[in-house]
């Protein structure tokens, strides 16, 4: 394991615990943010290898947070995956069109989740 650092943006405590523990058990290092503002701050400070972004957040939503990450040159190239319970028809296409690098709908399949995270980290490193 290379120990890439992953910023998880999630406002639900239980889900945060799940993602954190799964990622830790798989060998990733994690950063945790529960709001969009916090996510931007942490991303800028630590430049993680990957951001898993919830969409419905207490302050600014995930799409706006993505926009701000992309606007900052320190964080502009970090891959960002949408990790959301917004899973109605057309949502995947909508978020990819917004500029997310990938899309995972909740509830996640843990194996699939790990696979996708690995894929995007490797894509960045390799």
């Amino acid at each position: 394991m290379t120990g890439e650092q992953i910023l998880v943006v999630e406002d639900n405590e239980k889900n945060m615990k799940l993602f954190r523990d799964v990622l830790a058990a798989t060998g990733f290092r994690t950063l945790e943010a529960t709001t969009g503002g916090e996510a931007i701050h942490l991303a800028s400070e630590h430049t993680p290898d990957l951001v898993l972004m919830d969409i419905q957040l207490p302050d600014l939503d995930g799409v706006e947070a993505l926009r701000q990450l992309r606007a900052n040159e320190r964080t502009a190239t970090i891959p960002v995956l949408a990790l959301t319970a917004q899973a109605m028809r057309g949502d995947r296409e909508r978020f990819l069109a917004e500029g997310f690098d990938g899309y995972l709908s909740k509830p996640v399949n843990v194996r699939e989740f790990i696979g996708v995270v690995r894929e995007h980290c490797q894509g960045r490193v390799g």
Binding site: N12, K14, N15, K17, L18, D21, V22, A25, Q56, A85, Q86, A87, M88, S105, K106, P107, V108, N109, V110, R111
Partner: peptide, 25 residues
């Protein structure tokens, strides 16, 4: 849309934690 979101959020924890346990992580 809201209902879908609100029902899926707890399901994520239910299914996710169960899979973590089942996969003996």
């Amino acid at each position: 849309a809201n209902m879908s979101h609100e029902l899926r959020t707890p399901l994520n924890a239910i299914i996710g934690f169960s899979q973590v346990l089942r996969d003996e992580m």
